[in-house]
Simulated assay, not measured.
Amino acid sequence: MASAPQPTLPLFYNDLMPLNSRDHATWKSRPIDKIEWLKNQHAVPLTVEEFAQAQRDFPIIFSAGDQPVPLALMGLNEGVNTFIDDEGKPIGEFYLPAYVRRYPFLLAKLTPQAEELSLCFDPTCDAIGDLAEGDPLFDEGGQPGAPVKAALEFCEQFEQAGAKTQAFMEEIKKHDLLMDGEIAITRNDDPDKPYVYRGFGMIDQEKLRALDPATVKEWNENGLLPLIYAHMFSLDRMRVIFSRQIEQDKLPAQVLQTAG
């Protein structure tokens, strides 16, 4: 069994291997009861289709750099996740981004020249393998079982949502609406020493208000404008995440922080 060539592995994935009925005929999958790979991640990629749900729990920001992507902030500091405990268990109820739910599966090209995407998985995940118990990945005839069918359907939907997200970002960049974000948050017991977070992108509201009426009308009709508002409204959640870090004793030393 050979791993698919991956010069740069996506977030969470330690390796990628193509799934096939020859090498994995007897393999099974079991439910994931811990999300250990998420506990030290403070930002998770988000698709635009998730904005409406995600904004209720997380600040939605954009990564810095030439190719920004939407991110759900689960903590304001590197290595801090206020929604997952040290054992990988969820803290309370919250929306779990599709990027997390997709793991350990992923659609990927097996070669740079390949036109089609193949279903791959991370072989280091202990929820899939030649297990004694679990749901078979393939039936006796080598046909995909329920776990493979479900994973393939979910990954295909995720790819479609990813394409919509890319189109959204291209439109935002086209109108130069992103600006460098900054937020200062103070503790109630020390109001004179704010924690300043930078290193993320956000919508420039002045440029948004200056958009021409035709563009605003088009964006309102195609659903892009509500996505922008969801992002803007969600930024208030940064103070909530900050409070969660205080409650969980996960607030680092008071220095300039990078949120994205």
Rank of each mutant, 00 (worst) to 15 (best):
I203Y: 09
L211N: 10
Y197D: 03
N77H: 14
T258K: 06
N40F: 00
V148G: 00
I32K: 14
F51H: 09
E156C: 11
V69N: 00
D85F: 04
G88V: 05
L177Q: 09
L96M: 11
F233A: 05
T258P: 05
D189E: 15
E133D: 03
L107D: 05
E93A: 12
D190N: 13
L131C: 00
S243H: 10
Q53M: 14
L73I: 08
Y197V: 12
N188E: 14
N81H: 07
E221R: 15
H24F: 03
L152F: 14
L19E: 01
C125L: 03
M238T: 08
F154R: 07
L96A: 08
K217T: 13
R22W: 08
E49L: 12
I61F: 06
V216A: 01
E221I: 05
A214K: 12
P136N: 04
Q166M: 14
M232K: 10
Y103M: 02
A127V: 05
I203D: 11
R22I: 05
A132S: 11
K28R: 10
F51A: 10
T165C: 06
E50K: 07
V255F: 04
P123Q: 15
A64C: 05
D33P: 02
G260L: 13
F233G: 04
G88C: 13
D23V: 01
I60P: 09
E206F: 11
R209H: 12
A43E: 09
N77Q: 15
N14P: 01
A210T: 11
P10E: 03
R209K: 15
R239N: 14
I203W: 06
Y99C: 06
P104W: 07
S63V: 05
L137W: 02
L46Y: 03
V48S: 03
L152P: 01
A64S: 13
G75C: 02
L107K: 10
K207Q: 14
K173H: 07
G142Y: 15
V196G: 03
N20C: 02
R102H: 05
A214M: 14
A54V: 13
L9W: 02
L211Y: 08
